[in-house]
Design a protein around this nucleic acid. Structure first.
Length: 282
DNA sequence: ATATGGTCTAAGACACTTGT
DNA sequence: ACAAGTGTCTTAGACCATAT
């Protein structure tokens, strides 16, 4: 019948087209709620889970004792933290020092009249990422097509996870047979924890909206170290199905399940452009 | 309900072109 | 020759749409 058809407009909404970044709306909603709460009290915040998160912040940072409060929504900044290759492979901290990354990852910066900045990192939904770094120049198409990564840094990166160099290359090269599959590796703890600690960092507070609840977690040095303390690594060549153009490295710590992945995140030719660190709360 | 693969955006980096 | 303007590619951050 005439009512039963779908209009397809270009590629429609497939692949998140047109949805933009809803996290930005959440940032504004949270900031507005926080301001309303500060000015008018609990009743001004309609959403119970947001109110609970605000109350948790108040408990931790004693916001209510401040006479004034400054709330700065800076989520659009997307500070770069590219990988640095040395004895360890870690994310650089372009705006701070060590693993104190509050100023880099902040989406909302709250300042009380005591002058102390509280850096809130807001996250929305079940598919969240701690970091997302470029690897295109280290794991290049020309070397993948020849079958082996020769780049010094690229080799070190693969080795860190116990990824087989040649097998890695088959995942992205259409001209050869893909060697998908799952392998458990035992990466060097120091290297992996260095990477994860630099990526997770500390000096901020996570506000994570999930379905029906908002998680509030202070990320201090202790929490960062515990979060980054992981065991064995499961490498999925070709993703879980073995057929994807991606390679996933799964780790577990007491707080999180990490799924690092190397893949094309631009929807271009399928050759890898980024390494991302997806996580789920345990 | 979840896992997987995908694509959006802004901003920065760099290359190239044009005006003076 | 050099600065200013324009264009293209890469990076970082985000989380959604679809298949299973």
């Amino acid at each position: 019948g005439i009512s039963n058809f779908k209009i397809k407009w270009g590629n429609g909404s497939s692949g998140n087209r047109g949805a933009n970044n809803r996290g930005n709306a959440f940032e504004k909603e949270f900031a507005d709620s926080l301001f309303a709460w500060f000015e008018e009290g609990d009743d001004a915040v309609k959403d119970a889970s947001i109110l609970a998160a605000i109350q948790d912040l108040d408990k931790e940072y004693d916001l209510s004792s401040s006479k004034e409060i400054w709330i700065d929504v800076v989520g659009g900044e997307n500070t770069k933290r590219p990988l640095k290759y040395g004895n360890k492979i870690v994310l650089t901290n372009t705006k701070g020092s060590g693993y104190d990354i509050g100023t880099s990852v902040t989406d909302i910066t709250v300042t009380t009249d005591k002058g102390k900045n509280i850096y809130l990192s807001l996250k929305l939904g079940g598919t969240t990422t701690f970091f997302n770094v470029g690897i295109r120049k280290k794991l290049r198409q020309d070397e993948i097509d020849k079958g082996t990564i020769k780049d010094k840094d690229g080799k070190a990166l693969l080795k860190m996870f116990g990824i087989n160099n040649k097998r890695f290359c088959t995942i992205f090269n259409d001209k050869v047979k893909t060697k998908g599959g799952k392998v458990t590796t035992k990466p060097d703890e120091n290297l992996i924890q260095g990477l994860l600690q630099s990526g997770i960092g500390y000096g901020y507070h996570v506000i994570h909206q999930l379905k029906g609840k908002v998680l509030s977690k202070k990320m201090d040095s202790k929490a960062m170290k515990a979060a980054a303390k992981v065991g064995a690594c499961t490498v999925y060549y070709g993703g879980n199905t073995g057929k994807g153009k991606r390679i996933d490295m799964e780790f577990k710590s007491s707080y999180y399940t990490f799924k690092l992945n190397i893949r094309d995140t631009q929807g271009k030719d399928g050759y890898p452009t980024r390494m991302m660190c997806d996580f789920k709360n345990n």
